[in-house]
């Protein structure tokens, strides 16, 4: 509640004082982990969020990964005109780009839109209709109640990314083989070539951090919004922009730290 008041009296958010917003964001994160909600209730909330945020996203994740994997393969194949380069490089390139970037980062940007806007609008609507005030009046730590289950649910996000990797490479194989760009044998040789397990670890570390960002930045924009239904829509858009920016920057930093 204290955070709530600090930010409401503080017009920083209003004037887009970024530094102050970043400060408020971290104060919010701290508050999320204080005064936990009763476990029997929290358990139900977490399961509901897993269903909504993770299972509910699998369809789109699979769809996108499949086609992106296919496109990456076709493009690599089309650019490999030199007969001296082995054909297995197509599978190799598909595997590397899917595991390193397309599955973790590209999917996360999509999730920032899908899951993020759901989070901002659902929390924002609760703010606008005073449901958050109602929670606070009862003595519930509303940030813990609303944001914590989303963070925990999204810790399962790497499983979705693992599926995205698998489906992405599978999409590449389909496109490569059935498009007549490569043979199944050389594609499979390519995806086994110089495989470094650490790359998968790197991708999972990235996706865990992106998951945290996807859960918290949209929550922040929803929780501290002011106004009515129109502002809920605006807050969702703003949240998407900032979540994407954060993902892109963190992607750069993490790649430098983990692979550089």
């Amino acid at each position: 509640m204290r955070v709530n008041i600090i930010i409401f009296t503080n017009r920083s958010l209003f004037y887009m004082n970024y530094i102050a917003s970043i400060g408020s964001y971290f104060i919010m994160i701290k508050e999320v982990f204080r005064k936990p909600t009763k476990w029997s209730i929290m358990k139900k909330l977490i399961l509901k969020e897993i269903d909504e945020l993770v299972f509910g996203s699998l369809g789109i994740i699979i769809f996108i990964s499949f086609f992106i994997g296919g496109v990456v393969t076709i493009q690599t194949a089309l650019n490999l005109t030199n007969p001296l380069i082995p054909e297995s490089l197509i599978g190799f390139a598909a595997r590397q780009s899917v595991i390193l970037e397309f599955a973790p980062t590209f999917t996360s940007i999509i999730m920032a839109g899908k899951v993020g806007s759901y989070i901002t609008s659902s929390i924002g609507t609760m703010r606008v209709t005073e449901q958050i005030d109602a929670l606070e009046v009862m003595g519930v730590n509303s940030l813990n109640y609303l944001v914590f289950p989303k963070i925990i649910a999204l810790m399962l996000y790497p499983f979705a990314i693992a599926i995205a990797m698998y489906v992405g490479i599978f999409g590449g194989w389909i496109a490569g083989v059935f498009g007549g760009f490569t043979t199944s044998a050389s594609f499979i040789e390519g995806i086994q070539l110089d495989f470094i397990p650490y790359h998968v670890t790197y991708a999972f570390i990235k996706s865990i951090i992106f998951a945290f960002v996807i859960a918290t930045i949209p929550s922040f924009h929803g929780y501290f919004m002011k106004g009515g239904a129109l502002e809920v829509g605006k807050a969702s858009t703003t949240a998407f922009v900032w979540t994407s920016v954060a993902i892109i920057i963190l992607n750069y930093i993490l790649t430098q730290l983990l692979l550089g």
Binding site: T125, M126, T129, E130, Q131, D133, A134, E136, V137, G139
Partner: peptide, 17 residues
């Protein structure tokens, strides 16, 4: 703790959707 002793009916009801 004090808040747990309070009941509030908001102007717009504020029921959990």
């Amino acid at each position: 703790n004090l808040r747990q002793e309070m009941g509030m009916v908001f102007q717009g009801s504020a029921l959990f959707d």
